[in-house]
Design a protein around this nucleic acid. Sequence first.
DNA 1: ATCCGTAAGAGACGCATCGTCTCTAAGGAG
DNA 2: CTCCTTAGAGACGATGCGTCTCTTACGGAT
Lengths: 191, 191
Amino acid sequence: MEQAQRRRGAELEAVLLDAAWDELMETGYTRLTMEAVAARAHTGKQVLYRRWRNRAELVVAAMRHRTGSIVGNVPDTGSLRADVLAVLQRMADRFETLGPEVVHGLLAEAPDLDPEVYTRMAGVMATIVKRAAERGEIPTADVPDRVLTAATNLLRHEMLFAGEPVAPSTLTSLVDDVFLPLVSGTRERSE
Amino acid sequence: MEQAQRRRGAELEAVLLDAAWDELMETGYTRLTMEAVAARAHTGKQVLYRRWRNRAELVVAAMRHRTGSIVGNVPDTGSLRADVLAVLQRMADRFETLGPEVVHGLLAEAPDLDPEVYTRMAGVMATIVKRAAERGEIPTADVPDRVLTAATNLLRHEMLFAGEPVAPSTLTSLVDDVFLPLVSGTRERSE
DNA sequence: ATCCGTAAGAGACGCATCGTCTCTAAGGAG
DNA sequence: CTCCTTAGAGACGATGCGTCTCTTACGGAT
């Protein structure tokens, strides 16, 4: 017998998500088709459509299944600079495995899904800055959101537009030329 | 007679690009089809494919035809803050007429076309900063590229990710919380 | 242990659109 | 006036979507 037995529940779901992920890595996002994923998982399209309404949802689910929550633990190295660099490095690594094509595709077809991550990133940065202020590294933790998210947003922008993988110097430049000056400068917030 | 005479050359091209633009405004990017554009221009698809290889090229051409060069004249109001705000405002306006769906779609299907604009923006900002330094508004015009492009890149990021039209307060926040502190802070560039 | 309902596995279906190909005839170049 | 390019129109095969249908495995309820 070819097919020993039918898969069900969580077991089946894992197979489907793995198939989607493999297909994503091999063919990219735009050329990923539901039929190819179904075929790779040795099942029918209906099994996919029963769980996810479209390609975008399936792919997002596959990404989550593969790499887990994106904003897991907040780095805490004891140095503000190192903490921020660690966050940026993590973003860059993640982007590296996906590639620009996948991100562009997802942004176009599932624009409502990414903002979530993008918002939560502010929380991570807030924690890092708060710790740095408590250590006395910077004058205050009272930093505008705009500044908190500046480095991560600029990195995201860079990854979306630059055709090439992110250079290590980009990360240090973001921290040293933009982020640190902004949070460490003695700034009175004008009312 | 329905069709008085055949269009040719530049005349025909203009009709095609106008049709593409109208279609873009009405149905958006992803739902824009070559057949619809051809039909609207009262011609066949081959006429389109003879000039542009695909949807992305056609749409980009239509945008250029409609709105001309993107980085035209550099604002020169006499105030650094007002100059930068003017640049950001112009970006926001342009984005407003297109809408996020079009930009996302283009980014996904024609990722090589936008970097051009994105690079030239640095030149505009460099000019503005240079003038401000000559007026004595800021200590030096020797500002890293990273800083020069920070405001425009952050705005672009915002437009891509925020689901909503850009609030006026976003522009002022970018200038007052990020850009001006970066260029006006007395910074020694550490070697 | 048996029954039954849910859902897996498989594929056909209609639809939309792509990009190519074909055909006729218009109209500018010579 | 003739010829050659190409506009205008539509047919075509291929692809993939999302839905529907059908059979049958399996696991929970009795």
